[in-house]
Simulated assay, not measured.
Amino acid sequence: MSELYSSMLTRPSTSADGPRLRAMAPALGAEITGLELGTSVTPAAITLVLDALHRYGVIVVRDQHLTPAEQLAFMEKLGPVKKSAYSRANAFSVPGQPDMMVISNIVENGRNIGLMDAGAMWHADGTHMAHPDMYTALYALEVPYRDGKALGDTLFTSVAEAFDALPDALRSRIAGRKAVHSFTHHLEKKRRQGDLRRPPLTDAQKAEYPDVEHPIVAVHPVTGRKALFVTEGHTARIVGLSPEESDALLEELWAHIRRPEFIYRHSWKVGDLLIWDNRATQHLAIFDYGDLPRRMHRVETLGPVPV
């Protein structure tokens, strides 16, 4: 971790009798305990959460007891909530909350109650949009267990730390370049890998999600840190390179992003509200639980156009 952000990890953030913040891994990740976001969403609590997000990239607020309305109200304090048109179209929304998506492998009355294949490749949420997601909050209602061990972990990597650690030659090769992000490409790649477990896009949905271009290196809109902004899941190609050159350079960048020293692995507990900064991190879901039931509620906020 860079010296500035390493020093932040050791700085106390709360008083001994209030919410407590604990770093979870060297590059990113922190745990907040002693905070109930359904009943104590004070300005101080919001400041604590945002400061922790910007320092650590991903935080888990433990032992929450949130209704869908409370989770949504909390996220509205972090930014404009994303309108989940894709969730609505596929009936993956929480009843009464059209902008909250169910992430689940549960089948009821012959249909999937939620999105079953979310996170199968390294990605940041919404990079296929002109205004990609800023923050995502995923709330754990059912966590699968086998032999007393929680399954379905989520891995996170710090793309800010990854940029800081780029070799000079690789940094020079990507300077000023842009890449194409594509939802259609994302779903086709999942299909080829045998990971697609959702309905195909309709023509209307394809028109709603046109391909977009974003800089390969983006500046965080709050912290000003630079981060790599190409993902295994949604980045189709690098503008101005041949397909062969583009594929080779993307694979090199993705391998760098996946280096172990940048990663935090989250083991879920019921009541976890996991919040991450999509401009500083990428994530990957681990599908090791088969048909054991898993149910989570997701809300996202929109961010500015990457620059």
Rank of each mutant, 00 (worst) to 15 (best):
H128M: 04
V61N: 06
A124D: 06
K83S: 14
V239C: 08
P200D: 14
N109M: 08
E161K: 11
V61R: 12
V180S: 14
A218L: 05
K149S: 04
Q97K: 10
Y135W: 10
D291P: 06
I257L: 06
V58R: 05
G18H: 09
A255I: 01
L155F: 07
L151H: 01
Y56L: 02
Y209N: 03
T10N: 15
L78W: 05
P243Y: 12
L115S: 04
A236K: 14
M296C: 04
S158F: 15
R111M: 06
K178A: 02
G240V: 07
M101Y: 02
Q97T: 03
L166M: 11
V307E: 10
V81E: 11
A204Q: 06
A179L: 02
D203F: 09
L250V: 07
D288L: 14
R198N: 00
P199V: 03
A160V: 15
T281S: 15
E232T: 08
I174F: 08
D17L: 14
T184I: 08
G224C: 10
E70Y: 11
G290M: 12
S87N: 04
S246V: 05
T184Y: 06
T157S: 14
L78A: 00
L249T: 11
E245I: 04
R265T: 05
L292A: 13
V222S: 12
L138E: 10
P306C: 11
E300L: 13
H181K: 03
E232C: 11
K190R: 15
I46V: 14
L228P: 01
V49M: 01
L284G: 02
P199R: 12
D247L: 01
R20D: 07
T223W: 06
V41N: 07
N278A: 07
Y86V: 06
E251Q: 12
T67R: 07
H128G: 00
Y209S: 07
W268E: 02
S84I: 02
L151K: 11
L250F: 05
A140F: 08
E300Y: 09
T235F: 10
L201G: 03
H220A: 00
P304T: 11
A255H: 01
A218Y: 07
M129C: 01
A140R: 10
L50I: 01
S6Q: 15
N105T: 12
S84G: 06
E252P: 02
H123V: 01
P12K: 15
P12I: 10
S84H: 14
L138F: 13
D133I: 09
P210W: 02
E142P: 00
M134S: 12
S267P: 02
L78K: 04
R146F: 02
V94W: 14
G290D: 14
R171K: 15
P95Y: 13
H297T: 03
F229T: 04
P210R: 05
L284V: 03
D147G: 09
P293T: 02
Q282W: 04
I275N: 12
L284W: 02
M121L: 13
P26G: 13
L273T: 00
P200H: 12
G96Q: 11
S84E: 11
S104C: 08
W268Y: 01
P221L: 10
P144G: 04
F229W: 12
E36L: 13
D168P: 00
R197D: 00
H297L: 08
H54Q: 13
S2Y: 08
A179V: 07
V219P: 03
I103G: 12
R295L: 09
R258M: 12
P200A: 09
K83A: 14
L9S: 14
R62T: 11
P260F: 08
L201V: 03
T223V: 11
R279W: 14
